[in-house]
Design a protein around this nucleic acid. Sequence first.
DNA 1: GCCGTTTTCGGCCCGACTGTTTTCAGTCG
Length: 582
Amino acid sequence: MNNAEIADLFDQLADLLELEGANAFRVRAYRSAARTIDSLADSLADLVAEDPALLQELPGIGKDLAGKIVQILRTGGLEPLDELMQRIPADVVTMLRIPGLGPKKVAILFHELHLKSLDELKLAAEQGLISQRKGFGKKTEESILEGLQQLASTGTRLYLADAKPFADRIVAELLELKSVEQASSAGSVRRRRETIGDLDVLVAASCSDEAMDYLAGHPLVEKVLARGETKQRVRFKPIPRCFTPDGNRVGLEMDMRVVPEESFGAALQYFTGSKEHNVVTRRLAQQRGLKLNEYGLFRGEERLPARTEEEIYAALDLPWIPPELRENRHEFAWAEQSDRPALLELADLQGDLHMHTTATDGTASIEEMIEAARSRGRKYIAITDHSRRVTMANGLDEARLRAHWREIRKLREHYSDIDVLCGIECDILEDATLDLPDDVLAEADWVIAVLHYGLKQPREQIRKRLLAAIRNPHVHLIGHPTGRLIGARPGAEVDFDDIFKAAADEGVMMEINAHPARLDLDDIHARQARDHGIPIVINTDAHSPHGLDLLEWGVYQARRAGLTRQDVANTRTSKEFRKLLR
DNA sequence: GCCGTTTTCGGCCCGACTGTTTTCAGTCG
């Protein structure tokens, strides 16, 4: 049982307790424990094996929850959860995901109207049975039916790379308006989360009407979902060619808030979040006899100067915290360090060590990729086309690969300002062998080992394959290693502790793959790898010259993990980088 | 259920908006 699974059990229990009308703070305790566990670098199983008393040193975990964790690890289940699941059908819990329905309303639907499934809910809404109930009306009924439909098209999170340009466009347009003094993205876009649930935009304006009207009448807006004096929520039409990680079309929603200019800093801090980060900042304010809300920082009735985020954090005795770190994971500990290292910047990166050409599934020639990398200021690159197993991409066998490398070697003679490595993205096959023989790999400057196939294998086999690749003396890097390719499949999560230990021993690096569709090595895993002393490499996995621009998305992920330039290997010069290779 | 420079009880972040209400509870972020 890994951390994510244990956290999930606590979250499920919290949902069920809410439906049972349990004390809200008790529910919150379970949720906060789930978050703590989810973002923990060490495995709870290891912690308990060492000393179960250590559990109570974790924030938000006391005697009771520590006992429950031990029970979960010992029995694989959680007694109060099993008992509640007997009583409350899974569909009833799903009803909580319908906008407008919270625990109180769902409890009434279940206990008083005896609706046990989504089908029964739909029928009852269609027959008008729900609006007869006190506290429910026609609107609620309609929003239930709409919500059920939305529920059917699940997975409404978008990649940052798709969502951010969209948010940037709206912000730029708002800034053109006369009454708008400042505007910014907030929320998860500003925090550079890898996927985005909805967009938040904040506006400072003398009067809110112009900005609100503008958004409401925007040609891309499908529906105004709610509108008040200062706050408006809209749904956009499905964005063309824009899909969720699950491949669904999505109608993105946006929250807009309009505040007076003197409140912009406080509001930006507040709406950037995360929620968990803000709970802490508000508590810190409280401890100092202050009140922090989206309108400013107050001592009693008196407004303290806080027009910028910097001033707000200063009042809490903190340095300004970069939005990427604001998840209440490690930023407050980071802020306390006196010799706080600067987070990685895009400009720190000198090399890009994962890209494709027309030899396999890329769209540009070797020469075009070299030129594109030069024009972007890269000092070194690796050409890493696919190995033969990836037949769909015209993967290279030994003969074609050797010819490909000969061509690269010939071309690179002509360049003195960029170092071009002969590389390969070599598949780790289902039987844990590599897709190319060792004598071929030995000729490469740079070998990336990756999993593409057999991802539904039992996790033990996947773990074996990764370990075998790490122990192959010719492998330099594990490409898109955690592969939520793997982790995304429930029950297939791989415990990475062993993998990281082996990689550290063998001197194998780990990749943050900036390609937006990879969703790989998340900030927690990146931090774990760093803590194991593993050099991290940020690559684009570009399939075209334009793909080389993606490097920034990997940088965001690294910043969220709190990585500095020292933690990342391709911040080195080409010469220093080559010294890292075994 | 957790936590404590307010320390073993009594707090726990807080404001906006909606819908169904005649003054507010529930939901949301």
